[in-house]
Design a protein around this nucleic acid. Structure first.
Length: 274
DNA sequence: ATAGGCGCCTGCTGGC
DNA sequence: TGCCAGCAGGCGCCTA
């Protein structure tokens, strides 16, 4: 579900409620998340102070006492929100962290349980976590030369490249399609077939689309909500994603839907070429 | 190297 | 009304 703009929104909205707070009681449901939550770590976390909340790709990192790092991924249906303690507990809530002082709770809810929560106990382990997955660079720090080289070095189609977290971190199915539409490039084009100018255009398009989406607090199709419980509104601005048979907002030709890189892919066959 | 398929889960929609 | 197929913001693993 959540891609970079949604995760960024969650981080921005929960951060002010978390910084400086200490973790009190922690509740863990008996349904495991994707990366098994280890119950023994719960006791290690209690009483620790949150000193940083940040995002890396689609991952949320909550740092405590300058040593412990809680690494959370929202999968498809994950929701990380701050609630007053007395607020009713929604179904599918799997982690609850009491925040002290203040009488609030950080809650992790995930209907499909594709998300994960992992605890590491040092900066070294945190670095290792991301190195092990070879997570690619942040879209807003994408070096022009690196991007040109990664595209030139692959015969895969652009859709697959954009979804590859090792090439660029944070882009998912929605923003891949929206970026390609913005760049006027077909999702079928091979990376190595792009000119330098086209590679640069795509690089700028990705940043443009992600920035617009963050400004709208992300996109809500069905489950996504930000850290304060509000939905995003960028779905109202989609130019390609989900718009089968609707006129392209640039050239009026009907948007088509195809299956590419294993995912539903929406694009305009006229102005994005083929 | 790369494409495609499945599995992990739950819930919703549309067709019959 | 019920049932069943197909779909969903992700990702890891397997095969050819």
């Amino acid at each position: 579900m959540p891609e970079l703009p949604e995760v960024e929104t969650v981080v921005r909205e929960i951060r002010p409620h978390l910084l400086g707070r200490r973790l009190g009681k922690i509740q863990v449901s008996d349904r495991p998340l994707r990366r098994q939550w280890r119950g023994t770590w719960v006791s290690q976390l209690r009483g620790r102070r949150i000193d940083e909340v940040r995002r890396r790709g689609k991952w949320i990192i909550v740092s405590l006492d300058g040593a412990y790092h809680l690494i959370i991924h929202l999968g498809m249906t994950g929701q990380l929100t701050v609630h007053d303690t007395q607020q009713a507990m929604a179904d599918h809530t799997h982690l609850v962290f009491e925040l002290r002082p203040g009488g609030r709770q950080l809650r992790y809810r995930d209907i499909r349980r594709f998300g994960s929560a992992t605890l590491v106990a040092s900066q070294r382990e945190l670095d290792h976590f991301f190195e092990a997955s070879s997570l690619g660079p942040e879209p807003f720090q994408l070096a022009r030369q690196y991007w040109r080289e990664r595209l030139a070095g692959t015969r895969r189609c652009l859709k697959a490249v954009l979804l590859d977290q090792q090439v660029i971190a944070g882009v998912g199915n929605i923003y891949a399609d929206e970026s390609l539409h913005e760049a006027r490039l077909s999702p079928y084009r091979q990376g190595c077939a792009l000119s330098s100018a086209e590679a640069d255009r795509l690089r700028r398009a990705i940043a443009t689309v992600l920035r617009r989406a963050i400004d709208r607090r992300g996109s809500t199709i069905r489950n996504y909500i930000g850290g304060s419980g509000l939905q995003g509104s960028y779905q109202d601005e989609f130019r390609a994603y989900g718009r089968v048979d609707k006129p392209c907002k640039r050239c009026q030709a009907p948007i088509v839907r195809v299956r590419l890189a294993g995912r539903s892919t929406y694009y305009c066959p006229r102005c994005q070429g083929d």
